[in-house]
Simulated scan of single mutants.
Amino acid sequence: MTSMAARSNVTRIFPGDFRKAKKENVDATTTWEALKMNFHGFGNANAWNNKRKMSLVTASAQSSPRRGKTINGTMVKGARVEEGSINGGKLANESAVDAALGTSLHGRFVEDRFVYGQIFVIRSYEIGPDQTATMETLMNFLQETALNHVTCSGIGGNGFGATREMSIRKLIWVVTRIQVQVQSYSRWGDVIEIDTWVDAAGKNGMRRDWIIRDHNTKEIITRATSTWVVMNKETRRLCKIPEEVKQEVFPFYVNRFAIASEQTDCEKIDKLTDDTAERIRSGLAPRWNDMDANQHVNNVKYIGWILESVPIQVLQDYNMTSLTLEYRRECRQSNLMESLTSPTAKVIGDSNNNSINRKPDFECTHLLRMQRDKAEIVRARTEWHLKNKNK
């Protein structure tokens, strides 16, 4: 992404040479001098380990044995739990726990089966140190909704999100690019609604979009779009979408965009090298539990490894408000990886922080690569805002 021109009373976080950043306006934001030292020392954010028992509330495509119950008196897309079950992340009464745990994890079709919707509650083990949902949590929700969409559509095969015709031909979906824009992060106990739909992406791909709303206010808090192609599960090679598969998914296509075309990140993500990266973290190893049902690393897992080379002070003081991932190749459990990060010059100016068009305080370029032969796995670009500016 291109940098904005400098203007009066603004702070350039990364003017010219990144290592020569200087402070021009203390009131605007923390300058990179305060963060610079962290790019030369590595640290991890503390995990939020205090797991507490709370309810799961989802909409159901099937009838629920516990109908007639509510969340704070509100119907949740056909599935209900006891009155006052959630209040600021705490249970108001114990009967709500049993009622909520008895609900189905499936969502339902809306808008004549073109859009699939699902409801989630942010649980204690899905938040970070600042008690808000992490980007990985949001990505897991997007993936779960997409898979349930395929399953509930009636065209699902025996593969992980594959259709029947794909399963017959031993084909799987693989994501090539995904962009997520976050307006605000939900907190522990918040209820969110996710809608997802699909459309064609060129002649040989499929686009999947999502929007996330706050259940109480109905405000859209996250938008995401992605591009998918077909891979042969045995040869691990990309291939054209068979006509039979196109006929399966075509009835579900809807010409709608979660992210407007002018806001879609289509620009090339630059490749980082040893010379251009400011921080490199080596020795990152996938675990068995990082593998998905298609026997490669789950695409959500890459986010955590990308953040391994981001300074801890950035993670503490800033929110990631935009993430674009460009997947280059598969990663297996036997592969060791390296995470590279380099900040990009950005100017801070006045902007409407309630708008999706708000200007980022700064952005970073990232790369995950094989440690042995330096082969690229994922390129990424992130945008960040000071946390106190988003409150």
Rank of each mutant, 00 (worst) to 15 (best):
F160P: 00
S60H: 03
R80W: 02
S153P: 15
Q118P: 01
T145R: 00
S104R: 15
F141Q: 08
A59P: 00
P129G: 10
G107W: 02
I127T: 15
P65H: 11
A99H: 06
T134K: 01
V115Y: 12
N140I: 01
N46M: 08
N158V: 11
R108Y: 14
Y125I: 14
I119G: 06
A59D: 02
G154Y: 01
T74G: 04
Y116C: 09
A47S: 13
N140W: 00
A92F: 05
T74Q: 12
R177C: 05
L101H: 13
G78F: 05
V150G: 01
N72C: 06
Q131Y: 01
G43D: 13
S124R: 01
S55L: 09
F120Y: 07
I119M: 09
A96F: 07
G156W: 06
I122V: 13
A59H: 04
R123E: 03
A96N: 10
S104V: 11
G89H: 05
V175Q: 12
L56Q: 06
E165M: 08
N50G: 05
R67V: 14
M75W: 00
Q62T: 10
L101M: 10
L101F: 14
I71H: 10
L35R: 02
E144G: 01
E136T: 13
T163D: 07
V115S: 12
Q131H: 07
K90P: 02
A45D: 03
S124E: 05
I119W: 02
I122N: 03
R177E: 04
S153G: 14
N158T: 11
Y116R: 06
N72I: 07
K90A: 10
T58D: 07
T58Y: 08
G117M: 09
D98N: 08
A100K: 00
D98F: 04
K53N: 15
A100T: 08
V97R: 11
E82G: 12
T176D: 05
G107F: 00
G84N: 12
A133I: 15
H106W: 01
L105E: 02
M75H: 08
K53S: 15
N49V: 04
N38D: 13
R113W: 03
K77F: 11
G84H: 04
F120G: 04
K53R: 12
M54Y: 06
V174A: 09
Q131T: 03
Q118C: 13
D112M: 03
M54H: 09
G159C: 07
I86T: 05
L142F: 08
N93F: 00
K77M: 11
